[in-house]
């Protein structure tokens, strides 16, 4: 009997020692670049917002003095950012037209930083299997509560400044919500794609999808509040096509 319990205990200890590091379970073998699959065509353009943009809401950062102290003026919500008709934080990507082609994920991580109790970036794209580095630059607790429908959910805490965690996604999925429960206003969207042809509009509403192979594509522009629009675009090698999208409330 004693032998059994000792063995059981030994087994428990042993198991706890050998269980693998979950956050290192990342795609391997990404050294081979996407030769042949990538091309020289590009799609670029601008996303606009018609009508008068609603005022951005002030975030109630008094909820956490650490957050409050990092903003001279009240931080503003990022769910609808339009400057002079240019719409920011729109995710533009190739939705259709790449069937049959595979694109190995890059090994360089996408970094999402929690700074000033806001996510930077607020909207981003990432490839299946590409590492995602989650960084806490605030001296306060952030938890990263990610609730995708297709991929594995996770909810982890980063109690200290400078903490980093690596994660990755296994399946393509649009609009994976990132939330911090400690700061209810914090939100971000990650888009998981099986190819690298995506971009997020900058302050001036501009975006570029580079290194596309020649072909005809369905391009979608996605906005968290305003929905999605698609256009069909055909590009040849070496060509850069201009495409524009216009959203309204």
């Amino acid at each position: 009997m004693r032998h059994f319990t000792v063995r059981l205990f030994a087994a428990v200890v042993f198991l706890s020692l050998v269980t693998c590091h979950p956050s290192r379970a990342m795609a391997a073998g990404t050294a081979v670049e996407a030769k042949g699959a990538a091309g020289t065509a590009a799609i670029s353009g601008k996303v606009t917002f018609s009508g008068s943009a609603p005022a951005r809401e002030k975030i109630k950062m008094a909820a956490d003095p650490v957050c409050l102290a990092q903003h001279k003026e009240a931080a503003l919500s990022e769910d609808l950012v339009a400057n002079n008709g240019a719409l920011q934080n729109v995710f533009v990507y190739v939705k259709d037209g790449l069937a049959g082609k595979t694109f190995p994920p890059p090994t360089t991580p996408v970094v999402i930083d929690q700074q000033g109790c806001q996510y930077h970036p607020h909207v981003f794209g990432i490839q299946v299997g590409q590492p995602l580095e989650i960084l806490n630059s605030d001296a306060t607790l952030h938890n990263i509560n990610v609730q995708p429908k297709e991929n594995k959910r996770f909810n982890i805490a980063q109690p200290m400044k400078g903490m980093k965690t690596r994660k990755s996604f296994d399946k393509p999925e649009m609009a994976v919500p990132f939330k911090c429960n400690v700061h209810p206003w914090m939100g971000a969207y990650g888009h998981v794609l099986d190819h690298p042809f995506f971009g997020v509009t900058a302050e001036d509403g501009s975006f570029t999808l580079k290194n596309l192979p020649a072909g005809t594509y369905t391009v979608e522009a996605w906005h968290e509040k305003l929905g999605a629009q698609t256009q069909s675009v055909t590009v040849a090698d070496g060509e850069t096509k201009q495409v524009s999208f216009s959203f309204k409330k």
Binding site: S16, C20, H21, P22, S23, I156, A157, Q158, P159, M163
Partner: peptide, 16 residues
């Protein structure tokens, strides 16, 4: 970190 890689990344305990 070797015993509990997810619970104590880098040896620093996380709240969960």
């Amino acid at each position: 970190e070797k015993v509990a890689p997810a619970g104590m990344p880098g040896g620093v305990m996380v709240p969960e």
